[in-house]
């Protein structure tokens, strides 16, 4: 089920996430990075992805934290020496740079977390179907096969247990060998059936001429407005960054952060860019709440499931 930002045209979402990644990689400025991080986390929470966020957090902190730790250990550039470790100087600049890189990585992880929820496969495919129709078709077919193969693999596992082929029993060597036997049964069976798939494609005219793409997405006025807003609010900080505003110079020598008029404009525009989806999401939640209060005072909120690999397809 989709609502809010998730229900919008894929172009909006793709532009938004591309922009976020771009900013995360370009703007090495603590204020901007923290704003972006908070903005994306807010969006995640509004999208009801708090659980996913918590589940992934240890891994993300480990990955990002190690960067913060490793940089001062291996980079010794900078003027402000804090202390010496194993005869190597640890500089303030290196520590700061490490911390900023940590923020960058954390932001990127969060962006992808939100991306995974918002940009479903068909949206992703929609964007690439025109540019690379065959690749898109190939990918979609592979996506279609995965749940089918999972189900087949499950059946094969059950049946082959009768002939002693069982991944859960025996030595590691035997388990690995058995696992591959199961895969081989799946391979032979699936290739055989795939020929019928090929026939069915051909029977419906595959390869006769260049394919067009059918899409269920329509660009409505809200989408256009959001697109326009995103482009404008995204271009302002980008242009200002090219002109040299909003940079935080660490190496070779840390300079104090400046926050002038240029930065203020840049930051405001940047905030707008980051928060547009969260705003849309929030507005929709608020609308639902108020309409439900009015229409069905006793209604209880319902949980919506999403598609995931862990649930068996039976």
């Amino acid at each position: 089920m989709s609502s809010g930002f998730r229900a919008m045209h894929p172009a909006v979402a793709l532009l938004y996430y591309a922009g976020l990644l771009l900013f995360a990689a370009l703007l090495m400025h603590p204020l901007f990075l923290i704003t972006e991080l908070v903005g994306v986390m807010l969006l995640l929470l509004l999208q009801g992805q708090g659980k996913q966020l918590l589940r992934g957090l240890p891994f993300y902190l480990l990955m990002a934290g190690s960067v913060a730790l490793l940089n001062p250990l291996f980079s010794h550039r900078g003027a402000h020496i804090l202390f010496y470790l194993w005869d190597q100087p640890v500089t303030l600049e290196a520590v700061l740079y490490g911390l900023i890189m940590m923020l960058v990585l954390l932001t990127i992880f969060m962006v992808f977390l939100s991306y995974n929820y918002t940009v479903t496969t068909d949206k992703f495919m929609y964007a690439f179907a025109a540019a690379a129709p065959k690749t898109a078709l190939l990918t979609l077919m592979a996506i279609r096969f995965i749940p089918l193969f999972q189900r087949r693999l499950h059946e094969i596992t059950m049946i082959q247990r009768f002939r002693g082929i069982d991944v859960s029993k025996g030595s590691l060597r035997k388990r690995m060998r058995d696992g591959m036997t199961l895969m081989k049964v799946l391979l032979t069976w699936s290739l055989e059936e795939a020929l019928q798939t090929g026939d069915s494609m051909k029977a419906r005219g595959y390869g006769i001429r260049r394919r067009t793409t059918y899409s269920t997405f329509v660009l409505d006025r809200l989408d256009t407005t959001a697109l326009l807003l995103l482009v404008i609010s995204g271009l302002i900080p980008l242009i200002l960054w090219m002109l040299g505003y909003g940079t935080f110079e660490i190496y070779p020598r840390m300079r104090p952060l400046v926050f002038g008029g240029g930065e203020a404009l840049m930051y405001t525009s940047f905030c707008l860019f980051v928060l547009i989806p969260a705003g849309l999401e929030g507005k929709e939640i608020w609308l639902w709440r108020s309409s439900r209060r009015k229409a069905y005072p006793s209604a209880t909120p319902e949980l919506n499931g999403t598609r995931s690999m862990s649930s068996p397809s039976q």
């Binding site: 279609r144 494609m201 005219g205 269920t216």
Partner: peptide, 16 residues
């Protein structure tokens, strides 16, 4: 079946 969702599968032949 070639595609992953129902509408996509329906459209497949027409796209071809």
């Amino acid at each position: 079946i070639v595609m992953d969702t129902v509408w996509h599968e329906l459209a497949f032949g027409m796209e071809n």
